[in-house]
Structures are given as structure tokens and as C-alpha cells.
Amino acid sequence: MAVVNEGALKKMLSKQYKYRDLTVREIVNVISHYKDLKPVMDAYVFNDGSTRDLMSLTGTVPVSYRGNVYNIPVCLWLLDTYPYNPPICFVKPTSTMMIKTGKHIDANGKIYLPYLHEWKHPQSDLFGLIQVMIVVFGEEPPVFSRPTTQTPYQPFQP
């Protein structure tokens, strides 16, 4: 059981985070359960082009679909007003995947969920959000593997 170090996380969170203890506690709860989500400080680019160093939870969440479990790659950005504002969530397709746009996903991979739209601390939290994501993605996966192009031409048999 990888012990997650709250102190290290608090150091990672830049000073601009207004509710660091709350934020760290939630991150620790989530990454000790979803082992493939890692806390990463990175520059987030806002729609107006401005950037800000924000904490993200990056990695995969396990989604069951048609009897198989897939590791769906996601990135959940925490604003510095977290938990009083919802995370900004994306699926992060690899080169072998393509985004399946729909009710919950736009062409940029941004995730839209009522849980995010109706976010309200403390009823809403990261753990609940990920559980909702896993259920929703289990019905409508946000990404699919690119079809591998089968070459119909059979190589010449010497």
C-alpha cells in the first residue's frame, strides 16, 4: 500500500490554493483508492489563453464495458478554489484511441456531467465524481480503440 504523503502533497499544492487541507484530504482519499491516478502540478491553459499552475489528477480509471475492464485515460484539473468549484475534467486518448463525442464528451475530450454541473461542496467530492464517471463511461465509453487497418493484400509467398 503506497503510503501517500500528505505533507508532500501540501508542498506540491501551490500557495494559491485557498483550501489546501480540504483539497489534500480529498486527493489522498482518491489516489489511495484509484491507484493509477497521480497528482501532477502542471500549467492549465484557460479559454482566454491565460495559464495557471494547477493540480491535476492524471492517469486512468477502471471502466467495465460489455464484460471487459478498460483503463480509461483521464485528467481532472482542480481549480485553486477547489472544493468550492468543480474540477475541469478531460479524457486523454492515447494515439491508438479516438474520442467518441456525445452527451458527456466534446471534441476536445472535455467531460460534461450533471454531477459537475450541480457541484456543491461538501455533498460533491472527487471520490463521488469518479464513481459517477465510471458508471457513465460504462454505458457510453468516451474513447474507443482506433480500428487497425487490416491489409487485404496477402504478401507474396515465395
Binding site: 493509477d36 483503463n71 486523454k92 492515447t94 474507443f144 480503440s145
Partner: peptide, 14 residues
């Protein structure tokens, strides 16, 4: 080292 899960996605159902 825990290399972490390999990202995966359902095959495309054509």
C-alpha cells in the same frame, strides 16, 4: 516500480 495501468479502450464496433 508501479508503472501504472496501461490505458485501454473498447474496440471500435463497426
Amino acid at each position: 516500480l508501479n508503472g501504472g495501468a496501461v490505458p485501454s479502450a473498447p474496440p471500435t464496433y463497426t
